[in-house]
Simulated assay, not measured.
Amino acid sequence: MASNDKPETCSGCNEPISSGRIVTALNKKWHPEHFVCNTCRRPIDGAKFHQHDGGVHCVGCFAEHHSPRCHGCGDPITERVIQALGVSWHANHFVCGGCKKELGGGGFMEQAGRPYCSACYADKFAARCSGCAQPITDKAIIALDGKWHRDCFKCNKCRNPVTDSTFQVQDNKPLCGKCA
């Protein structure tokens, strides 16, 4: 400071900062002991702090009191947040309810409030084909008290897919018009 300059004024106590360290933050000057966390009231040491609701908070208090909580573990989320199913998740806790694989920001299916990858969802919850018993994940043919993949709804004699809107039934199995 030059001899004709007046000393800086501390934004915490409004007293001059005549010697020693000066903390510069938020376009203001502070005595180091007066730049404090609004929650724990301890001096903020170092360059990392957070602003929230007009106040400053140390990293620990901000995480504990203002960070979103992970729906999976309940702990504060201080890094990447996944918002899904109306709640917040750590990326490594937003996992498939079946295979437990991380779902990240990709697509998922929901069942009873739990996320599932498309493969697990199909395996656990999709309708099963009356022909092959595999999950139906696309359009289905509904006939003979069941759902069928298009390629599985086959004539019981010639084994070709039945594509006509009318067909015959023998032993609760479809017959195409040619074989009927």
Rank of each mutant, 00 (worst) to 15 (best):
A2E: 04
A2P: 01
N4L: 13
N4H: 14
D5M: 14
K6P: 03
K6N: 12
E8S: 10
C13M: 00
C13F: 00
N14D: 02
S18N: 15
S19F: 14
S19Q: 13
I22S: 05
V23R: 00
T24M: 11
T24F: 12
T24L: 12
A25F: 06
A25H: 06
A25M: 12
L26E: 05
K28G: 06
H31C: 00
H31K: 01
P32I: 03
E33I: 11
V36H: 05
N38I: 01
P43K: 03
D45M: 07
K48R: 10
G54Q: 02
H57R: 10
H57W: 10
V59T: 14
V59C: 13
V59A: 11
G60M: 07
G60N: 12
C61K: 05
F62Y: 15
F62D: 02
F62I: 02
E64K: 08
H65G: 09
C70G: 06
C73L: 09
G74F: 04
D75A: 15
P76G: 10
V81G: 00
V81D: 00
A84D: 05
L85M: 15
G86H: 04
S88I: 05
W89A: 03
A91T: 09
F94G: 08
V95P: 03
C96R: 07
G98D: 07
K100R: 15
E102A: 14
L103T: 08
L103D: 09
G106D: 09
G106K: 10
F108T: 04
F108P: 05
E110L: 06
Q111Y: 08
A112C: 09
A112G: 07
R114E: 12
Y116C: 02
A119P: 08
Y121I: 11
Y121H: 14
D123T: 13
F125G: 06
A126Q: 05
C129M: 11
S130L: 10
C132P: 06
P135L: 02
P135C: 01
P135H: 08
T137S: 15
D138C: 06
K139C: 07
A143N: 07
D145I: 05
K147T: 05
R150A: 13
F153Y: 05
K154Q: 10
C155M: 03
N156W: 01
N156E: 08
N156K: 06
N156R: 08
R159Q: 13
P161I: 14
V162M: 00
T163K: 11
D164W: 07
S165A: 15
Q168I: 05
D171F: 02
N172A: 13
P174Y: 00
L175D: 03
L175C: 13
K178A: 14
K178N: 12
C179H: 09
A180D: 10
A180Q: 13
